[in-house]
Amino acid sequence: MTGNGGAAIVAEDLRKAYGDLKAVDGVSFSVLEGEFFGILGPNGAGKTTTLEIVEGLRKPDGGRVRLLGQEPWPRKLDLLPRIGVQLQASSFFEKLTTREQLQTFGSLYGVGAARVDEMLELVGLADKAGTREGQLSGGQRQRLSIACALVHDPDIVFLDEPTAALDPQARRNLWDVLRAIQDRGKTILYTTHYLDEAEILCDRVAIMDHGRILAMDAPATLVRGLDAPTHVLLEPGALPVDAAHALPGAESVSADDVSLSISTREPARLLGALAERGSLGGLQVRTATLEDVFLQLTGREYRA
């Protein structure tokens, strides 16, 4: 689903520095109503600081934010019910059950019991309604955190790395929750460093590093603009390396104990030639992904 209304969020030339560190350095973007927009970047890129400025949790040094037509800083009481915020680290009340946690958050907005039960169903925690928060798994805690951000039915939902530290199954379950949120017409702005997740969920993404946006568009558009070769992988020994080099469309060939890899920008010609030779056993085709775009823009060095 893509946004089909006006801009729900407009950020213009946002800046935030801590001493000599420019955490956010001239960031501008807009998010349409109903759009799922992701901010991607390595650790320390400025994602969370940008999100906190847009939410109105942090005052920018420069620039301007319009959130549903209003500036979120200083905090405006009439704007707060229209936004929902899930932070990287969520704190809950000790000894309260899942339902009681949600009821407590909902009471701040006059939310009734029916809405609480609806949220428990949405995030898949109805069967854990009577369980204390401390007995929930990491994935269940994340879903409860999102339910707390949604319980008052906000127009915009901010999610800061909602799937961080979750196992693959919990991440996939949470993807279903996020899709269900967007299907309800909500605008979602979220940060993540999981590129596969962003490629699947987001209508558009902004890739950040060192406080700046390096690229912004639909994931598929960014991938197409990379002009990266397709990699065709064969079983080791499927054909000699010199024969692989001679195939039409082959640009480079590498071989190890795991696979024979042929890169090409003409995959149809290459695959046709392999089919004629009967060399399709165990064949895999790997096209470029958002991760390739990300690595080209931000580099491959590890950053803690």
Rank of each mutant, 00 (worst) to 15 (best):
M1W: 00
T2L: 09
G5C: 05
A7L: 12
I9W: 09
V10H: 01
V10A: 12
A11E: 04
A11T: 04
E12P: 02
E12R: 15
R15H: 15
Y18W: 14
G19A: 06
L21P: 00
A23I: 07
A23W: 07
D25T: 07
V31F: 07
V31A: 08
V31C: 09
V31T: 08
L32N: 04
G34T: 03
F36L: 01
F37W: 04
L40Q: 06
G41E: 13
G44T: 07
A45L: 11
G46M: 12
L51A: 14
I53R: 09
I53V: 13
L57Y: 08
K59P: 09
P60R: 14
P60A: 15
G62K: 14
Q70D: 10
Q70S: 14
P72F: 06
R75I: 11
K76T: 08
D78Y: 08
L79Q: 08
L79A: 06
P81S: 11
I83W: 01
G84Y: 13
V85G: 06
S91G: 15
F93D: 00
E94R: 14
E94T: 13
K95V: 00
E100G: 05
E100Y: 07
Q101A: 07
Q101R: 08
S107C: 08
L108M: 15
E118C: 12
L122K: 01
L122G: 02
L122I: 02
V123C: 01
K128P: 00
K128L: 06
A129Y: 10
A129L: 11
G130I: 03
G130M: 07
T131I: 14
R132Y: 04
G134S: 11
L136T: 08
S137F: 11
R141C: 00
I146A: 09
A147Y: 03
A147E: 02
A149T: 11
L150R: 13
L150Y: 12
V151Y: 10
V151H: 10
P154Q: 12
P154V: 07
V157G: 04
V157M: 05
F158C: 06
P162W: 05
T163E: 06
A164K: 15
R171P: 02
R179P: 01
A180I: 01
A180P: 02
T187I: 01
L189T: 02
T192D: 08
H193T: 01
H193G: 04
H193C: 03
L195D: 01
A198H: 04
A198N: 09
A206C: 11
I213F: 03
P219L: 12
P219C: 12
L226H: 14
A228F: 04
P229K: 10
H231Y: 11
V232L: 14
L234Q: 03
L239Y: 00
P240N: 10
A244R: 02
A246G: 04
P248T: 00
A250I: 06
S252V: 05
V253F: 01
V253N: 07
A255C: 03
D257L: 10
D257T: 10
V258I: 03
V258W: 04
S261T: 15
S261Y: 01
E266D: 15
E266N: 13
R269L: 15
G278F: 13
G278R: 13
L280Y: 10
G281I: 08
V285L: 14
V285H: 06
D292L: 13
L295Y: 12
Q296F: 03
L297I: 11
G299C: 03
E301D: 03
